[in-house]
Nucleic acid binder design. Sequence first.
DNA 1: TCCATGATTGTTGGG
DNA 2: CCCAACAATCATGGA
Length: 98
Amino acid sequence: MPKAASGKRGGKEIKRRSKKDPNAPKRGLSAYMFFANEQRENVREENPGISFGQVGKLLGERWKALNDKQRTPYEAKAAADKKRYEDEKQAYNAEESS
DNA sequence: TCCATGATTGTTGGG
DNA sequence: CCCAACAATCATGGA
């Protein structure tokens, strides 16, 4: 029964679905997004010519290689971005009432 | 009330 | 143009 295993996010069958809502209040970015934004340059700089597969995986590895304190700045960004989403959500809620 | 799921975010690089 | 691993997220809804 491939239906998630309770607490843990079960699988990895993720497939982005364009938009399903009218104004689609997109969520905020994730800490990893901000981390990638900065590391992408660094990682790619140390590995010039590597494909995304290498960068992507490598990126994720060092992402966790950081300490919670190091992720803080990224998480902070994610939190700020989330707020951004809240705003969209509000507009979405307001507009929703036709 | 609680859980789970879905939708989304961004990187690179290529078919 | 879209997807692919990588990670987080976290708000919403369905029971």
